[in-house]
Design a protein around this nucleic acid. Structure first.
Length: 921
DNA sequence: ATCGGGTCGAG
DNA sequence: CACTCGACCCGAT
């Protein structure tokens, strides 16, 4: 099959200028050069090439994405000649009369549309010919895609891959972009690199392959050329962007719409008569007799039922094409809902999304649900506000949602599972969360659906503001959005989610992270959902009492501080504190400043000044109390849900760069423990009731053990295998003394060194941290590497590995990309190097505890325990345990935590229990 | 109202 | 110039 795609403006301009010296003017004085030339070319193709499929692409009226990025784009090109402006509508009418579809997409130029359609059609057994004289189309040429360039004298040049490569001396057609990016293109106003023409550009590309590679290796260039390239690096990059034809325009190739049809002779005769194109009128009578090219069979679809029309001309603009390109339905009757539900029950997967009246899932009421099974097709099910009615509707979908065989696809699906839980639906079966898929593919990017849709689908979903108004102004509840709007929005969400899954699933496989995704992250969703829904009990009364006591102390402290300072100020303002200390009281001459120029008053700095003035101690005390009071003591009771009487944190599975979870609303992963007052807060986290006990288990030195395993350092492995206190053992080695003679100071320093190593610490950093001279810090580190010789090698290997591959990975193949590892800026590079060391360690620990959580959860379910996992704090798991289950729980938890993976060192978990979190530790 | 900076809680 | 986070407060916009 043969598809012709015509760049209309390119041909129109060419025709116009071809006749510029002797324009064709008819008796009414109309300049018909452009129209005549265009029809001539069109007729020529139809006759010569007899395409089976055809379409014509126009540039849209408004600005395109290129204009948005570069206002000068095509600015220097003179205004479109008046004649052409007048000719375009006539030409469009002629094309319509030919029954040829017109493609026009707002925001994209014709070449982007042609590029997109060409790539799609080439995958469907078409030979695609792009008719245009513009050389930038060369970048699109591939196996079944050709350029069809008109040449002067009425013949054509067909350029396939070898022709393009030969003509420009390139090794791949994509290099056409680089070529244009370097040499520029005056007709498109692409600046390129000044002083670089076609020849130089070819030479540079032969050597470097791509612009990126060239710019990364300018040090290999000589003299003036190097300066030229380096000076214009940004412009070159931008030129490449401008020269790049997009192949992901939001348009779907549908062969049926492009099928060649007979022209509407009557209509054409009318137009040609008006234009006085007698020769064309004469040709028309012959044309109509000619048979159309044979269309290959389209499968069963057309045999089965009568298709009302396959006429492409019916859909002559993209807007029309798009309006039929998706079908969103509303299932608002019992009949429709039952039909939809049983349809879903027979699928292997479906995407779904919930619309709610609250962004907090535990507090949200269902407004509707949407489902998608096939791209561009989705259903919206409105859910009534009345809970009895709502249950009725929702329950129709329970069999589908609870079916263990059907994969559920969602964006942040934990939210939807939590919402449905309140409607007694227990979502089950394999999951596919597009947010988490993207998190694994690109941990440090954003993972919002709108962002994903725009980036990977080139599609901008309806913004939520369009439904409920912009934030700041009074917002509508989802409940008040009219059905016609919310259904489109919701159905689109399910549709987009499905499309994202189709995009990400192969990517996960390609990156080798599919097992991490399907075997760890997806099952973990059910675990987190359960933990969040369960919640943790807080002793409010104890907290209230602490609050009152502390408030009294704080008021007194405040008064003392004002007296010492000699005036009132805001103690909570770091800036004002700095001014009081350094300008007003002049406690210290040399003061460290923050990057914004204020005095730094952070804890470590104040701690060093403690002896200089009594106000320092008071300030530190005030700050400590204020933090505890506002962040924990006063805040936590506010977060208790009346529905459960407990606190329910939310775990975010797609935030950290290393693979850890994070906790919000509230953050239960930073509850104080280190000092005495903070511990009071831990005490307030209790078991649910007197039949229960708080049980806590945590990995012993998991990161250091992973370090020992990954580095293969026999000394560290031996230390762990002997069961010794690792910090004391390290101290003994560094200081060369027997284990019994290690002092607490030696152990403290060795412990700091152990942690520092994991973070890739420097001599300077260690000396700061331990408050010791640099020389001593150096000795410590030297001693460390002598004690554990393979550690240093491992660190160097990690960095080299990151440089070579661009990323590092954990034991379970979780990746972290480190593009800065090759930076010429030592600070930036240093940061990346420390990440190269730290990420595999911290990330592997995160992977391990995730696996443990899944296994523990599954065993609890299998053995039908009432006890629940309630908190995860990176290397620690906490449980509300029924007393009669304590031994079972302890056994399961330790067994699963320690048995996740066999490392070269034992994986050890310690545990404890008590009435509250503090006691359990 | 919103956002960035500073500080500090945790592993 | 030690890695990973989130919450609170201030103060500028």
């Amino acid at each position: 099959m043969k598809l012709f795609l015509i760049d209309a403006y390119a041909l129109i301009y060419r025709s116009y200028y071809a006749f510029i010296k002797i324009p064709r003017i008819n008796s009414k004085g109309v300049n018909t050069s452009a129209i005549f030339g265009f029809i001539n070319s069109l007729e020529d193709i139809l006759k010569r090439e007899n395409p089976t499929h055809i379409a014509v692409a126009f540039d849209p009226h408004g600005p395109t994405f290129r204009h948005e990025a570069y206002e000068q784009y095509k600015a220097q090109r003179e205004e479109t000649p008046e004649v052409i402006k007048q000719s375009v509508p006539i030409i469009k009418n002629i094309i319509k009369a030919y029954n040829i579809p017109i493609l026009e997409v707002a925001g994209y130029e014709a070449d982007d549309v042609i590029g997109t359609i060409a790539k799609q059609a080439a995958k469907e057994d078409f030979d695609v010919y792009m008719m245009t004289p513009d050389k930038d189309y060369g970048q699109l040429v591939e196996d079944h895609i050709f350029m069809y360039r008109p040449r002067f004298g009425g013949d054509y040049e067909i350029m396939g891959v070898p022709e393009v490569l030969n003509k420009y001396g390139l090794t791949s057609t994509e290099q056409v972009i680089d070529l244009l990016g370097l040499m520029g293109d005056t007709s498109d106003n692409i600046p390129g690199c000044p002083g670089v023409g076609e020849k130089t550009a070819q030479k540079l590309l032969t050597e470097f392959g791509t612009i990126e590679n060239l710019l990364a290796n300018t040090d290999k260039l000589k003299g003036a050329q190097r300066i030229k390239v380096e000076k214009n690096a940004e412009q070159i990059r931008f030129s490449k962007f401008l020269a790049t034809i997009k192949t992901d325009v939001p348009i779907q190739f549908d062969a049926n719409l492009y099928i060649r049809e007979k022209p509407d002779v009557e209509q054409l005769t009318k137009i040609y008569t008006e234009l006085e194109f007698r020769t064309f009128i004469n040709k028309l009578s012959e044309e109509v007799k000619k048979p159309l090219p044979k269309q290959p069979l389209q499968g069963d679809l057309f045999g089965l039922f009568e298709v009302e029309t396959t006429s492409a001309s019916k859909y002559s603009t993209l807007a029309d094409l798009r309006s039929i390109s998706h079908k969103y339905y509303i299932a608002d009757t019992e009949q429709k809902q039952n039909d939809l539900a049983s349809f879903l029950e027979n699928q292997e997967f479906f995407a779904f999304d919930t619309e709610t009246d609250n962004i907090d899932p535990l507090n949200a009421g269902l407004v509707g649900m949407s489902f998608a099974v096939k791209e561009n097709e989705a259903w919206y099910v409105p859910v009534p506000e009345n809970s009895i009615e709502a249950d009725k509707v929702v329950s129709r979908f329970s069999p589908a949602l609870e079916n263990e065989k059907i994969q559920k696809i969602g964006q942040n699906i934990k939210f939807d599972i939590l919402v449905l839980r309140k409607y007694r639906v227990k979502v089950a079966g394999p999951l596919f969360d597009t947010m988490i898929a993207h998190y694994l593919l690109n941990p440090e990017l954003r993972h919002g659906m709108d962002y994903l849709a725009e980036t990977y689908l080139k599609y901008k979903p309806i913004p939520i503001e369009e439904l409920i108004g912009t934030r700041g102004k009074k917002q509508l509840s989802m409940r008040d959005v009219p059905l016609s709007k919310i259904s489109e929005y919701a159905a689109e969400d399910a549709d987009v989610t499905l499309k994202l899954r189709n995009y990400f699933a192969p990517e996960l496989k390609k990156e080798g992270i599919d097992s991490l995704f399907y075997d760890i992250e997806m099952p973990l969703i059910y675990v987190l959902t359960d933990m969040e829904a369960t919640g943790v009990t807080i002793d409010t009364i104890a907290l209230k009492q602490s609050s009152e006591e502390l408030s009294i102390v704080m008021v007194a402290l405040e008064k003392e501080i004002y007296e010492m300072a000699g005036k009132k100020f805001n103690i909570n303002s770091a800036r004002q504190v700095g001014e009081i200390l350094f300008d007003h009281l002049k406690i210290e001459e040399k003061a460290k400043k923050t990057k914004t120029g204020n005095y730094s008053t952070s804890e470590d700095i104040l701690e060093k000044m403690r002896g200089k003035h009594p106000i320092i101690g008071k300030l530190l005390e005030y700050r400590g109390l204020k933090k505890l009071l506002s962040t924990y003591i006063d805040a936590l009771p506010e977060l208790i849900r009346p529905t459960s009487g407990k606190i329910h944190t939310s775990y975010n599975q797609a935030v950290t760069a290393t693979g850890r979870l994070s906790s919000t609303n509230p953050n239960l992963q930073n509850i104080p423990v280190r000092d005495e007052l903070g511990r009071e807060i831990r005490k307030a986290f209790t078991a649910d009731n007197t039949n229960c006990i708080f049980f806590s288990a945590d990995y012993s030195q998991i990161e250091l053990r992973i370090m020992a395993h990954l580095s293969n350092d026999q000394h560290m492995i031996d230390a762990f295998c002997s069961g010794a206190d690792i910090h004391a053992a390290t101290a003994a080695k560094i200081y060369g003394v027997p284990l019994e003679e290690v002092t607490s100071d030696m152990r403290r320093k060795a412990k700091t060194a152990n942690f520092g190593i994991i973070y890739g610490i420097s001599i300077f950093g260690l000396s700061e941290r331990l408050n010791i001279p640099r020389a001593e810090a150096k000795e410590l580190i030297d001693g460390y590497f002598q004690s554990y010789p393979r550690i240093r090698e491992y660190m160097d290997e990690s960095i080299a590995n990151a440089k070579e591959k661009g990323y590092v990975e954990t034991i379970f193949k979780r990746k972290r990309f480190l593009p800065d590892i090759t930076s010429h800026n030592a600070i930036v590079r240093g940061y990346a190097e420390r990440n190269a060391i730290n990420a595999p360690i911290q990330g592997s620990a995160a992977d391990i505890i995730k696996v443990a959580m899944i296994r523990i959860f599954n065993r609890f379910e299998k053995e039908k325990l009432k006890s629940k996992m309630i908190l995860q704090v990176h290397d620690e798991l906490n449980f509300n345990v029924y007393k009669d289950e304590l031994e079972t729980v302890k056994q399961i938890v330790l067994e699963e935590m320690e048995g996740v993976i066999k490392l070269q060192v034992p994986l050890i978990a310690d545990c404890g229990e008590g009435t509250n979190w503090l006691e359990a530790h």
